[in-house]
Simulated assay, not measured.
Amino acid sequence: MSGSRGRRNKLLVPQASQGLEQFKYEIATEFGIQLGADQVSRLNGSVGGEMVKRMITLAESQIGGTLGGTTGGTNA
């Protein structure tokens, strides 16, 4: 994604860039979307939204689903 606008977000792990690009195109293919500047921004954005959803789901499963106070603690 190298448009004329500068990116504001910086990757914490620059080596992840290629993997994220591949992930983006895999989701776009699943959705039947051809990514590009000539597409409606809502379609391009839906791919990014789905990426975030999947990354959150993965992170939650990796930490054992302990987000949101679901640890079964005894605090009442």
Rank of each mutant, 00 (worst) to 15 (best):
S17W: 08
L43W: 06
N44W: 03
S46E: 07
G49W: 02
S46D: 06
A37T: 10
T66M: 12
V40A: 13
K24S: 12
S41Q: 14
R42P: 00
Q18W: 04
Q15R: 07
A28K: 02
G72V: 00
L11N: 01
L12H: 09
V52E: 08
L67H: 09
F31T: 05
A16W: 00
I63F: 07
K10Y: 04
G69P: 00
M1H: 05
E50A: 02
K24W: 05
L67G: 00
G72P: 02
R8K: 15
K24Q: 11
G32L: 06
S41T: 12
R8C: 07
S2G: 13
A37M: 08
E60Q: 06
G3H: 03
R7E: 13
R54W: 02
T74N: 14
S61Y: 08
G48M: 06
K53D: 09
R5L: 15
G36I: 08
E21G: 04
G64N: 02
L58F: 12
G36R: 03
G36M: 11
L35I: 07
T29Q: 15
P14I: 00
V47G: 00
M55H: 03
S4W: 12
D38K: 14
T29G: 08
L20R: 01
D38H: 08
G6N: 15
Q18D: 13
I33T: 00
G49A: 09
L67I: 14
Q39P: 02
F31E: 13
V13E: 09
G19E: 13
E30S: 12
R42L: 13
S61N: 15
Q34S: 12
L11P: 00
E30N: 10
T71V: 15
Q39M: 10
Q18F: 06
G64A: 04
S2P: 01
S46C: 09
M55R: 05
S4A: 11
K24G: 01
L11V: 01
L35T: 02
A59Q: 10
V13I: 15
S41D: 14
F31V: 06
G69N: 10
Q15V: 10
